[in-house]
Amino acid sequence: MSEGGGGVLDSGRVGRRRFLRGAAGVAVGGAGALLWRRFSIPGWQESVFVAKGVGYGGDLAGPILAGMRELGISEGEVRGKRILLKPNLVDLSEGVVHINAHPLVVGAAAEAFLRLGAGEVFVAEGTGLIRDTPMVLEACGLSVVLAEDKIRFVDLNYDDVFSVPNAGGWTALKTLAFPATLRRADWIVSLAKLKTHHWAGVTLAMKNLFGVMPGIVYGWPKNVLHYAGIGPVILDINATLKPHFAIVDGIVGMEGDGPINGSPKTVGALVMGRNLPAVDATCARIMGVDPRKVPYLAEAERRLGPIRESQIEQRGESIEPLRTDFLLHDFIPAQRGLRLSPARG
């Protein structure tokens, strides 16, 4: 028998200093939002690494490791740390590579962190539409990678839960509930897919973190968050969680009616960085999308990170040769008018 009493769902006791910093940031951030309304934060520079010519059949850990080193991630910074990889897993379609973060990219990211000396790398996800998470792992092939590489998996939908003050304040949600597993990770890595989205315009590293929110509190789908506003909630989650790193699988992305029903779009790129708005802005430009026209990215610039090209140092490959305009549908309001000028055929 285990201890019952207060139970696993007690809230308000936040153990990790990072979350406490997030909680303390409510007042400061709120004032800051007013001061910086309509302005980006001057002088804020971030670096983003882009690897091109990458395929699922080739070496993937090498480019990821090269990118991490190029971004200044040292063995000393990672050694002994517990790394949580949060892949974008949304659907059951078997044999397709454009819907979920590819399992080989997940495995390669784990290998890269382990080669830098990570103490443990594990994978965690709380699927939004499908409650049987192992079924999704099996359908997309990630179960095979997890078994072969002996990587632990945590279903965030059924994890113990704690809540913290909403450090973003973009929605009316006073607190956000997170799975306890997040407190036990030293690094949270958003392992996203390069996709268009029919409600959010694009879904990249920031939107991928929707998937850490526990279904046990928010439902399947996480409808509480939809009612609060998808864009504002993306900002609140990122402001409160403060993820450490992002890797976007843009080897084959999705265009059109994403995040599930769109078509494959081959780009052959991996995009990574420490600052998620900067990573997402770079991804958007690669997709031929103007990040300043994606409402939640434009808003992120005020407090969470830069999205202007002048404030993002591109390492590895430059964006322009990689730019591949993703199909945007006029009948989808969230995708109208997002095209980066000039359009590419």
Partner: peptide, 19 residues
């Protein structure tokens, strides 16, 4: 999965969960 005080946990070593 029974817990002290009645009821069950969702996982090993967890606390009471109504569902």
């Amino acid at each position: 999965r029974a817990v002290i005080g009645g009821g069950s946990s969702g996982g090993e070593g967890g606390g009471f969960r109504p569902d």
